[in-house]
Simulated assay, not measured.
Amino acid sequence: MTTSKWILLCTLATALALPFTRPVVAADFADVLDTPAVHSELAGKGLLTGLTRAGERLIAVGQRGHILYSDDAGQHWLQAQVPVSSDLVSVYFPSAQQGWAVGHDGVVLHSSDAGQTWNRQLDGRQVGPLLFDYYQKQLAKQPDNPELQARVADAQRMKEEGADKPFLDVWFENDQVGYIVGAFNLIFRTDDGGHSWTPWLDRTDNPTALNLYALRPVGNDLFIVGEQGLVLKLDRSTERFNATPTPYNGSFFGITGKPGFALVFGLRGNVYRSVDGGASWNKIDLGLPLSITASTITADGRIVLVSQAGHVLVSADDGASFMLQPNTVQAPVAAAQISAVGSLVLAGTRGLRQLPLE
């Protein structure tokens, strides 16, 4: 298995094969799923891997269940109340009040007060049984279906393995409809704000169960990107994510764009651009052989990409070319977001920081 974005940033490597397993622990071990995140004055300086906006508020998530929020464009941060201390990877708010965060141990958290307090909607102890029950019911209708037989067997294995599979990204269309994706083709959809989740593993063109690293809309299209050049696009008529071939077979960590074009980015500075809804992709030469791990879009429509080492690249021509931003303080970056006042806020291994954009 190739590296995940989260592991890449933790280790500052471009290729690392580590299984998503949990260590053997002592009998008095307190499960991170049952241990609230500890409040710390240093939370804003630790590893933070996800950033988003909730209206004008900034929300950041990271290791040990730390979630922070800022109402002054990232100058000062407060720590939220979080019921778990699992490492969190991604966060998204479709509206100013309602938001979701996901991470390791199959955690899905929800906030209805703009990120100040959070409750758990799902965790890895429930994921295996949820998958098993769902696909067992499908198999009962089609007992000779080999794909469903395999899905039930995989779900049984996940039940036995426990809460060791991470969710790596989350996106909500509105306060009710959303998706979560993660390791080994994990994908679920909710139509009721996360009160229930429906497995969509059988609705992806991903037969080898590659890791799904990110999902985001571009215009009216919804894309997922992952390992080995995987790019999937939702066909809303069939409710299925179909594969979109790309010229690259390395990992893609994210996708961005605007109506009319899409960009996928990943390992070793590989960025590809499509102007036909993902039917074809052309490589964009950044002149930078470092992995691209984050992106955001400014209020005036410029595309911002950030490298694993903290280089900031900006495009004013809809992603056709990028210029390196001068005088950036380089440090490993996992996520980027434009604040309400237009500054660039970055999250990574050294916590949170702000940069002006020229």
Results as ranks from 00 to 15, higher is better:
Thr3Met: 15
Lys5Gly: 09
Thr14Trp: 09
Ala17Met: 11
Ala17Gly: 10
Pro19Arg: 04
Phe20Tyr: 13
Phe20Thr: 14
Thr21Ser: 13
Pro23Val: 10
Val24His: 14
Ala26His: 12
Ala26Thr: 15
Val32Ile: 10
Val32Arg: 13
Asp34Met: 14
Ala43Tyr: 00
Gly46Cys: 07
Leu47Val: 15
Thr49Tyr: 04
Thr49Arg: 02
Arg53Ile: 01
Ala60Cys: 00
Arg64Phe: 13
Arg64His: 14
Leu68Asn: 00
Tyr69Phe: 11
Gln75Met: 14
Gln79Lys: 05
Ala80Phe: 08
Gln81Cys: 00
Val84Glu: 06
Ser85His: 05
Val91Asp: 04
Tyr92Val: 03
Gly99Lys: 10
Trp100Val: 12
Ser111Asn: 03
Ser112Pro: 12
Ser112Glu: 15
Asp123Thr: 03
Val127Asp: 11
Gly128Asn: 13
Leu130Tyr: 02
Phe132Ile: 07
Gln136Leu: 15
Asp144Ile: 12
Gln149Met: 13
Ala153Leu: 08
Asp154Arg: 07
Ala155Cys: 06
Lys159Ala: 09
Gly162Asn: 07
Ala163Asn: 06
Asp164Lys: 14
Asp164Pro: 04
Lys165Cys: 09
Pro166Trp: 06
Phe167Thr: 05
Phe167Pro: 04
Val181Asn: 02
Val181Ala: 04
Ala183Met: 07
Ala183Asp: 10
Asn185Lys: 15
Arg189Phe: 02
Thr190Val: 00
Gly193Ser: 12
Pro199Phe: 02
Arg203Met: 09
Thr204Arg: 08
Thr208Trp: 11
Leu210Asn: 14
Arg216Ser: 13
Gly219Leu: 08
Glu227Pro: 00
Gln228Pro: 01
Arg236Val: 10
Ser237Arg: 14
Thr238Asp: 15
Phe241Lys: 11
Asn242Val: 15
Thr244Trp: 10
Asn249Pro: 05
Phe253Leu: 01
Val264Leu: 02
Tyr272Leu: 15
Gly277Ala: 01
Gly278Met: 02
Ile284His: 13
Ile284Cys: 10
Ile284Val: 15
Asp285Phe: 13
Gly287Lys: 01
Ile297Asp: 00
Ile297Asn: 00
Thr298His: 06
Ala299Arg: 11
Gly301Asn: 09
Arg302Trp: 01
Ala309Met: 07
Ala309Asn: 08
His311Lys: 05
Val312Thr: 07
Val314Met: 10
Phe322Cys: 11
Thr328His: 13
Val329Ala: 11
Ala336Pro: 06
Ala336Ile: 03
Leu344Glu: 13
Arg353Lys: 03
